[in-house]
Design a protein around this nucleic acid. Sequence first.
RNA 1: AGACACGUAGCUCAGUUUGGUUAGAGUACCACCUUGACAUGGUGGGGGUCGUCGGUUCAAGUCCGACCGUGUCUACCA
Length: 920
Amino acid sequence: MKKVFNPRNIEQKWYEQWESKNYFNADPKSKKPSFCIMIPPPNVTGSLHMGHGFQNTLMDALIRYKRMSGYDALWQVGTDHAGIVTQMVVERELEKEGLSRELLGREKFVKKVWEWKKKSGNNITNQMRRLGASVDWSREAFTMSPEMSKAVQEVFIQLYDQGLIYRGERLVNWDIALQTALSDLEVSNEEVGGNLWFFRYPLVDEGHVTIATTRPETMLGDTAVAVNPKDKRFKELIGRRVLLPLSRREIPIIGDNYVDPEFGTGCVKITPAHDFNDFEVGKRHKLPLVNILNLDGTLNNDVPNPFKGLEISDARKKVIKEMEKLDLLEKVEPHKTKIPRGDRSNSVLEPLLTYQWFLDVKKMSNVAIKAVKKGQTEFIPKNWENTFFAWMNDIQDWCISRQIWWGHRIPAWFDEEGNIFVAESEDKVRQKYELASQKKIKQEEDVLDTWFSSALWTFSTLGWPSKDNLLKKYHPTDVLVTGFDIIFFWVARMIMMTTHFISEVPFKKIFIHGLVKDSEGQKMSKSKGNILDPLDIIDGIKVKTLIKKRTEGLMQPKMKEKIEKQTIKEFPEGIQPYGTDALRLTYCSLASGSRDVNFDLKRVEGYRNFCNKLWNAARFINLQLAENNGSGTKESKDTPDLWIKERLNEASQKVNSYFEEFRFDLATQTIYDFIWNEFCDWYIEICKIRFSSPDYQESEKKAILKSLISTLEESLRLAHPIIPFITEEIWQQFKPEHANKSPSIMISKYPTGKAKKASKKMNDIEWVKEIVTSIRNIRGEMKIKPSLKISALLQQGNKTDKQRSKDFEHLIVELAGLNSMRWIDNDEEPPASAINFHKNLKVLIPLEGLIKAVEENKRIEKNISKLTKESDSLSKQLNNDKFLNNAPPELVKNQKERFKEISKELQLLDIQLQEIQKLL
RNA sequence: AGACACGUAGCUCAGUUUGGUUAGAGUACCACCUUGACAUGGUGGGGGUCGUCGGUUCAAGUCCGACCGUGUCUACCA
């Protein structure tokens, strides 16, 4: 074994073996209970970022834990087709070749996208493999695959036939750049500094009203002016008419409570075709809708001539100029507004009147709410339910149609009169609706929102609607592991669709994890230039390459310099290769249930060191194996060997329950703590002493070695779900020596820690640790060189102390660096010494010229002040009758004992202090 | 504007559900040590008025209230 653990050489090797031996695959025929996790499908043409890495690690740790715990584990893997983003990416590629999707036509374009998908899809699967994800590759799914398309079609048709899907002309969020509708959820509002323009609108008879607007150009589509009917200033205006400037149309003044008299002038222009609020007002007052926009965002022919064909921004300038010319611009005030942008294209969205398909979700949402209320599905942490309910309670119909080409084409046909027919194919349509063969029908061009297909994920991946599906075995799935950012987009919609179609919830539990941010708490994003690829932490990356990666293809090239500086500051030396296991440990240690996960490379470094520690522990055992010509056939029954087993059992029990509670951080810490602070720091050190001691016979040493190996083997299994690679590597290296006959650690049994207890022995070793630590404390504080052997005296103490000191003298002597340890009589005057206490037992280190009295004086004073503080607060407590009467008796008893102990110690320390001060 | 979350060591985070010994971990820091698993190491040590103020209680990091600060989401006044 190499002196330093090098993850590079082993990770890929083991992954390939696991995969080729089908260890990842679920077995539907198995009689074992099932455990199923559905991966939140990433975008097929994207790549995994730190958040994905985090999420995948948690899922993998869980699935490995369950697989080892005797479950038939299915981790369903797959990707979604990400309609809009993918189409954008491919269009950008085509642009480079001087092509466009319009030039290619729909069929050829879609073919191109499939080619692109094939090419980039490997990126994600490769990343997942590098992260160690034990997904069932044989069942890999894709939302656009024929099977899943079938499910999508089936769902659409059923919903249409049930009257839950309808088509209608509605105001929707229209993305001008992409020329498609978006759902409400895909809109992100951005606050910008804008203006409030005050326009005078002349009344038809005489006078005028002044309105205020942030969007002057929309006045071309105004069909009313509104005032609040309770507003005394304008009450009598209601019913009169305004001559709309520029368009020179007469429009009414109406009264509507929507108007806030406090804001602006108290008079509002109403543009029902270009504003969601105005649309509602228009509906209430039966106002006409005047649409002034083409689909590409230019002004259409329904505006006065000079404005036709203008872009919105130009139209705005022109409107302002014309109004100024007419002396109708009263004033301009700066005003903050929010402009809606598409979360994919980042272009400005316009409310636009178009025909779209909608899903009526009211009933489905009620069912979903009930399912969560009844606890059929449980959010973890629970408070995410509030977020879920808040949205579900005032859910709007879902606009599911998109005017793009990459996606599931809506299975609807129109005849020339615009009648709608819905079925799987043109033939089926004719059959179903009994249409004459000569009747011309045409399929809808629109495709479905990607989330529509993702909403079916849990049951469509298991084979629905085909009859021989796996729903019975794996559904409802056990837990969904996901981020809170897609509770609306995905989680809620899955619950609705799944309860609607198969009458059960998609998952029993929803574990919501935090969002990975950078070490400064900033969201990681391409535009901020602070993204990290998990592989860069696994394999390492030079700072130059990282800068290149971060600045490539930036939307705003100005950011380049800033990102470069920031990257150099954050990673002056680039990133070292830390390996997958260290990264996974870091992820798990951060998974505590908090909302934000600030990723700090320092943590990775610490866990990389841990892997090295584990590696070297194994290396030590290996060296001992060589030294002792192998291990024995039976394990040692020596106290330290029983003690470590018991400690391991305790750790195992904890880890099991932490996994069940999704407390990956605590599971990680328990494992870390056991391996480093118990196994390495004490057990191995104790083994060393015994191996080099002439008091132990060869057969005893071999038995100890056997115990050492079996403890290591079990610890490796305990740690495997979190650090799969290093554990498998070491486990396999020791295979000839340990009793586990399984071909791989990943399919062997998970430790439950339910073995018998050996508590008496435990306390013996804990006592040894205490004594050793207290001697080391004196050594450390007194700055005695580790190489210098010193002698220790024991005084007073009880029978157990005496027995233990006799039994474990050799261990204490070696661990504390003593040359001798002996008891002195209780009444014997000890030499001038540094001292520590353990209840009644005094541990004395004679000064003998190696300890300066001044130092010891300081040390004792420090201890006295610490203990005095505690003693004061205890005595306060114990002198309080209310405490004595109200506190639990157990606590009172403990506090009394503690107080006695401290008082005794303080007394002794005082004597000691006087002794020492004589020497000053 | 509302809802929710968060504020604990220089930094990144546990601990708060169910109040009860001396508030923990990693990292950073200081001292001593290259001892035959490991310097990606060993041993010892320093460091926290638990955001602020008030309340409940024998007892508050933990429960309640107010405030300050940070963040997220939702809804938005044209």
